[in-house]
Design a protein around this nucleic acid. Structure first.
Lengths: 129, 129, 129, 129
DNA sequence: GTGGTCTAGACCACT
DNA sequence: GTGGTCTAGACCACT
């Protein structure tokens, strides 16, 4: 379900966050569904429980999951996205860097746009079709 | 010419790399043109010389600039981009993360694609038009 | 009568304690009145019986309710408050933290004082008026 | 400068957060001033560096301090307080609980209000007078 | 030197 | 069983 790449430059807890977000967007994890416990997941992906805990806490801060004390961690009711200016700025900055990198790789505008479409469809495919 | 944001999550040396790449793509820095020396640049942007040095070394490793001993650092002859598999993989991974973030921000596929086009045009505008 | 918020940062048993205290102060629960049994209340608010039991034990420890074996749990004769130093210290510490938080929220001294008065009146309104 | 109470029910990292907020409000820590490094502070208050780090990260998330990579942690430019509804709700809830506790301790409305004033003055006294 | 991440493992409160 | 906190200590990137 979740795959950790130890060689990735992005920290393990970030990889967990990203992949759980992806699973939720794809509908593989549904609203209200229970996530594996910190210990379970840490066992499954062979990672220290603290690392999983950090990922869960960050996801909770973002309002994507919620923990009920003594019961476990659950997928939260997904909010309607609000365009927070600060987060949007960061997004655009990242996109700009991506475009620069694409230029250096000789990837065309069209190719990037196709990939954007492809990934968007992957996210929406399973559950919302 | 180069603006450093001390508070940015991306490290200073990365910011230097990104901005020099951008200046070259935009044609503001031309092939063969001399870059400021490590000391000059570090003075201009008020940054530790080690940090500038690290950026230059990375840019040289990527073949984007070259150092001629005793003469200085110059914009290299820009190679025809080769698609290195590893770098391409990383690129696609980043693009995927961007798309996930866009989903959480409620940004449409079309909107992302428009921004991609806009940034691409910005890169090509000045010199290649 | 009692409303539990599963997502609240304060534990469920604490919420029960606080709300029973509030009901007693407001006179909705009168001295000598019978409280619902642990099972009844746990059924009513859909909570584990252990959790209700824990709340009742703590309320009993504080002398606010009392259990008569085989008869049930009752609102105790309310004692004249004694200023226990330890509890008073904790109270003042909490109040200090509240004031710091008010500062960060930009709430004025007057506003906080007005709210204190308002809540005090709410407690005394129903029964002692 | 910072005193940890190991017996306090509130976690150590929270105590650090609260006390740093207090020091900033009192002007003992000024805008732009460098905080002790994670290791220094952890040594001073005899606590694990991870615990200090957690406190600093939370303070940064709240925009109260900021870390400059490789340089250290500094008191941020203090923002004008904005009344976020959610945070305000929590504040009022806490204040209500405080008032209930005051009732049980037999503390009068006037007494609570005086203490509020006293603590507010303490925060503003040293630097802003 | 600076903070950030991670492991290993203990202990605790809550349900 | 559940997540939260904490210690002890290592390693790493950045300046």
């Amino acid at each position: 379900m979740i795959l950790i790449n130890e060689r990735s430059p992005s920290p393990i807890y970030e990889q967990i966050i990203q992949q759980i977000k992806e699973l939720i967007l794809k509908g593989i994890l549904q609203e209200g569904e229970k996530l594996p416990s910190v210990r379970e997941l840490s066992g499954m992906i062979v990672v220290n429980p603290n690392t999983v805990s950090k990922a869960y806490q960050e996801l909770e801060r973002q309002g994507i999951i919620e923990t009920l004390r003594g019961k476990g961690t659950f997928v939260a009711k997904q909010q309607v996205p609000r365009m927070e200016t600060e987060r949007l700025d960061k997004f655009q900055e990242s996109l700009k860097q991506i475009v620069i990198e694409a230029s250096y790789l000789g990837i065309s505008t069209q190719q990037v746009q196709e990939w954007v479409e492809k990934y968007m469809l992957e996210l929406r495919g399973d559950s919302n079709a």
